[in-house]
Design a protein around this nucleic acid. Structure first.
Lengths: 232, 232
DNA sequence: CGGAGACTTGACTCAAATCAATCGTAGTGG
DNA sequence: CCACTACGATTGATTTGAGTCAAGTCTCCG
């Protein structure tokens, strides 16, 4: 609390534009905590008392209903999660658990709302960030409603491939069971989908993915920036 | 443009908290237009030059990919649409068409962004609105990933029933083919789903829905405010 | 060496889409 | 006013996509 200015947090887009004074105010009540892997951080339905900033590690945002569970999104550093619940002073819509050892800064929600009113730069950043989150979830919805599981996997692989700079091969950044849940399918079905994609120029060996025929895979997957890209 | 202050717009949550001066500035470049039914307003991928405010009528926000099409959400008056694209100065992620004769106020996006910086009340309202939109789409995702088509329909009916104040019977506010698209199923499957819900206390006669056994339907549908309710 | 858990594979079931035909109704034009 | 049409809704038959259940394999790690 004393010397803790959390430089990784300060450099986030969300906090970069605000005054030093307001940043200090915001961080006065914040604290950094380190969590082991596979720890529950948040249960859906709880009140959003803190805005969370993931500094290192990885967090799974998931949701349950009627004894079913699905992973809604994976959070990687450095970024915030559950900004919307914080803003609206509402209950969390998703549960959160660490996937690996993670360091997380927790900022009291009321401070976020208070500073929002004081600092125009921060306000603008919050809006831009929220708009990005919104657009990202809309893309998820389109992905789910317009594509089959096989098409979703093909586009996921192409998207990762592109993000890494189209290397000869790359490793999945998620466990396969996790990936299956994110893509809205079962692990068994994911296994079969990987096999089915062999016919479209995808070679899988454990974690390692090789896209042997990008043109063919793209012809099948038909990626579009209106569903697949992260930015814009 | 001269005397047009658009009172229906002014009273919207989004615009209620701003100064008269800034509201006037915002509306200076805005204009109201009336559209016939079934008119395309926006194509996904186009630049977001205007924030749209639906004053009367109804608008379908839909999306296409690979010769498939799905309705992502239905907009009813009075509310805005595509706020996120406006904020980020990005391309629309969804197409829009009128469902009925509709009156729509169109506000240049650059004015929205400019006034956002000038008016803290407006800024706060934009954030709150966007956060609500975000949470709504997250709920849609959970609905799609955690429930079967039959469960989605059952919960939709309960939700409408509740919204109307639990009347003996009520009319669907959407064409069935529209509803099917919103719920992520085909019209044929929707027909069968309605039939299947007879066993859970739902009677359907054309547009008219009667929930003869709410307790039974709820036991099946298991509604939850973390997926189904509009607010919070 | 032995387990625990993730991944795979196969057989089967179930949900949902597709294809095809029919029915009903609102609207059109003669 | 009455066919005729167009389109949405329904129904049935069938196929396809995806989940479930049940073994089995592999790998990491104590």
């Amino acid at each position: 609390m004393s010397d803790s200015t959390f430089p990784e947090v300060r450099s986030l887009d969300l906090f970069a534009d605000m005054s030093d004074e307001n940043y200090a105010k915001l961080m006065r009540g914040a604290y950094l905590q380190t969590f082991p892997p596979h720890v529950d951080l948040i249960g859906e339905g709880e009140g959003a008392d803190f805005l969370h900033v993931l500094v290192s590690g990885a967090v799974d945002l998931f949701s349950s209903w009627n004894n079913r569970e699905t992973s809604v999104m994976i959070v990687k550093p450095v970024s915030t999660f559950i900004l919307a619940a914080t803003i609206r002073d509402a209950r969390y819509l998703m549960s959160a658990r660490t996937m690996e050892k993670s360091r997380i800064v927790m900022i009291p929600s009321q401070d976020v709302r208070a500073i929002f009113d004081l600092d125009a730069g921060f306000a603008r950043a919050v809006v831009v960030e929220l708009a990005a989150c919104y657009r990202s979830v809309v893309k998820t919805t389109k992905n789910l409603k317009l594509r089959t599981a096989l098409e979703r996997l093909a586009n996921y692989l192409l998207s990762r491939h592109r993000a890494y700079g189209a290397p000869a091969s790359f490793d999945l950044d998620l466990e396969k069971r996790q990936l299956a849940s994110v893509l809205g399918m079962t692990p068994e079905n994911l296994s079969r989908a990987f096999k089915a994609l062999q016919a479209y120029g995808v070679a899988v060996n454990g974690e390692k993915i090789e896209i042997t025929n990008p043109a063919l895979l793209q012809k099948f997957a038909k990626p579009t920036s209106l569903i697949d890209d992260d930015q814009t």
